[in-house]
Nucleic acid binder design. Sequence first.
DNA 1: ATGAAATAATAAGCAGGCTTATAATGAGCG
DNA 2: CGCTCATTATAAGCCTGCTTATTATTTCAT
Lengths: 164, 164
Amino acid sequence: MSALKKGVLGMSGKDTQGEDIATGVSLELHSAARLLRRNFDRRARGHSLSGSRWQVLWHLVRQQGQKQAELAECLDMAPISLARQLDNLQREGLVERRPDPQDRRCFRIYLTGQAEPAMALLDGLEKETRAQALDGFSPEEVIQLQTLLERLRKNLTREEIEFD
Amino acid sequence: MSALKKGVLGMSGKDTQGEDIATGVSLELHSAARLLRRNFDRRARGHSLSGSRWQVLWHLVRQQGQKQAELAECLDMAPISLARQLDNLQREGLVERRPDPQDRRCFRIYLTGQAEPAMALLDGLEKETRAQALDGFSPEEVIQLQTLLERLRKNLTREEIEFD
DNA sequence: ATGAAATAATAAGCAGGCTTATAATGAGCG
DNA sequence: CGCTCATTATAAGCCTGCTTATTATTTCAT
């Protein structure tokens, strides 16, 4: 059964218990993400904001002027999904689509002045949620988690490209 | 600014850089979960299955006979969300709702015989996705990730209860 | 015993993500 | 030039999850 080259799955073959534990990673990841989002969204709802809006704005604060396709890739999100988020953000006056003079197909995305107070609020809410989620974590553990997740994410995005 | 009791957020106050890194945990978690789901769902789509179906079935293989509310709590999911999943799974003949003789309000959830081959297939797909996601991870790192996520999840579910 | 409060499942309707398909524009090559 | 192919944004429609509201039943306190 070539248990040798299994690598990560190396625990397989021993018993089902080992596999169950490994499988748990997928489930934990899902649950954790869902709970995090729910927690954040509950805080943000009153202000007619949300986690997904925050995610987009957070990136824009750090990098404006990208076209939608670029921005979507940075956010690991399908372009159409981002487009709808931008529709909403634009309607609420937080974001601006500026036509690109070089290429009439695309828009460049910028924050408006109104985005600043909204971001201040959202950053606060995110901090609260994060503090709850990471209660009892040492700073090293936070970095550890962050690093592991980053590697996982890169493994999966790399895979996306190879898929084509 | 009482930077002392900040705990996890202890890096704040120094500079924005530290906060950005900490904030990244939320974003990474979201992205990782989304990519994982997308990867799995792409594999499963051809068989008219999905990650969310797998999640429910996976739990049922290990514990049958729970009522929906109990099952939903195990899965960190709102009861109504589970209900709709069960509707689908039932329609496809993978799951059964049996009335509880003691309490006519609730059903007990069981797998049918048809569930077994579907689970074999899904477990295989999940293994593939997981292998990609965790490529390059040592077994210890997988455990680490799993453990950190579990703690995070528990922090957030504990919080849910306190919310009431 | 009975009426009020809790609990189980579901319905209605929204938000966010994805796939697939389309229209418009740009790029490249004959 | 002109034709094909790639790319940008969007539309239509599905899946999954949530909140809030409803109905049926149970529990419990009086």
